[in-house]
Design a protein around this nucleic acid. Structure first.
Ligand SMILES: [Mn+2]
Ligand SMILES: [Mn+2]
Ligand SMILES: [Mn+2]
Ligand SMILES: [Mn+2]
Lengths: 219, 219
DNA sequence: ATAAAATTTTAGACTAATCTAAATATTCAA
DNA sequence: TTGAATATTTAGATTAGTCTAAAATTTTAT
């Protein structure tokens, strides 16, 4: 009934809806790497299937939103499996999870979740929704909004693009580390950190915007 | 490049090639639950892609055969994972594995195989080929060819259809059991067994043809 | 307020995979 | 060996998903 293609569109619209104020045809086209013409055409089909509210206002219906969260749930559970159980590295799992997220069996998803002992986050620190679509609240902020002098825990990355994750690996940055903000440059947004009381690391604003931290203690 | 649809055709042709002398359009159509017209059309595409030798003689090329074995390998490894790791029952795994077998990542397949500790057979006793496509030799025969009075080990089932597996569950039959052939009726091919020196079980020829045994000792 | 720029939709075409109905080809049996 | 039955292929159509090019609409800037 719902194709893999449609699932990918719904997921794209969900992610865009989280950040952008209003989701546009061209933004979906950009994200899906398709032409705006194809997207326009697809939106008609999504509307006919009751997955988006309206053709002008690209917003997911409850049904569409639930579907998106199920796919994200599967994606993140599989990523966790790949890293925790099969010893993949965090930069290797995204494209495989893109395939596994479309496997349809709610029993499989629940058994996988149980096997992994109900993880709250995936290898990139992203929250894993439960089977009703509820996300755990992680109260994170982007590093770019951190206050100088304060101490934080590195919680998640905003994207799991391979080259970005490799860049973090090269800088020695890992989820769970304690980061003290040494200084923040106003004119370019760059940040200087002390990582685990040991190494100093400089980060550009571009990177800092994609790193999420929380002020709490380690788990 | 190679679609899920094509993978399913190649797998069907491989299985038919194992049993039937010559594979026919109508046999493929029957197995795929498609019309002969669709199959005829698809065979042209398979030939163009170098997956079958000829349009008249439906035989897989080396490339096609290797592809088939890779898909079967993945199917059986995933079935093993579902039963051994996620506690599924043997009659629940086939349809999920039908989806998982199309996930493309040879690294994933190898890591899964390693995690499962290089299993030789899947939950239905079917041999799992290695990454080069070589099957372990299990030297099995159908129960219908067993000799009365002799003792065998129940090694595998020839089909993993859910209703067939449920039938076996109801009779208390499980892989690895020792079966002594008490008698074999010539006129209808039915068989009477002593299972693990405890229970007597009667089986029709239809069932006996789909149960595979070997004469060796337990592993 | 209007023209230019950007965005979106429509029109028309293509591919993969399927179907039914009709035409062909092959096999089998009298 | 020849007509009937069976099997296969072709013809023509359909659906999902994509494209480019052109038309229409909306936004932005002068
Ligand atoms: Mn991912
Ligand atoms: Mn992730
Ligand atoms: Mn199976
Ligand atoms: Mn099996």
């Amino acid at each position: 009934m719902i194709s893999t293609t449609i699932e990918n569109y719904i997921k794209a619209i969900f992610y865009l809806g989280e950040t952008a104020t209003n989701v546009t045809v061209s933004a979906v086209a950009e994200r899906m790497q398709n032409s705006p013409a194809s997207v326009s055409d697809m939106l008609r089909r999504l509307y006919e299937k009751g997955l988006i509210e309206d053709k002008n206002n690209i917003t997911l219906t409850d049904q569409g939103s639930f579907l998106a969260k199920q796919i994200i749930r599967k994606h993140r559970l599989w990523e966790t499996f790949l890293v925790k159980t099969l010893d993949f590295k965090w930069d290797e799992v995204h494209s495989i999870a893109e395939q596994l997220e479309h496997v349809q069996s709610s029993l499989l998803t629940e058994r996988l979740e149980r096997f992994l002992e109900y993880p709250e986050t995936d290898p990139h620190g992203d929250p894993i929704p439960d089977k009703d679509g509820n996300f755990p609240n992680l109260s994170i902020i982007p590093l770019s909004e951190a206050e100088p002098g304060k101490s934080y825990i590195f919680r998640s990355v905003a994207t799991d693009a391979k080259d970005f994750l490799n860049h973090l690996d090269n800088k020695g940055l890992q989820l769970g580390q304690r980061w003290v903000i040494i200084e923040k440059e106003e004119f370019d947004g760059s940040v200087k950190l002390l990582v685990d009381d040991k190494n100093e690391v400089y980060l550009s604003e571009k990177v800092a915007k994609n790193l999420n931290i929380c002020s709490g203690q380690l788990d």
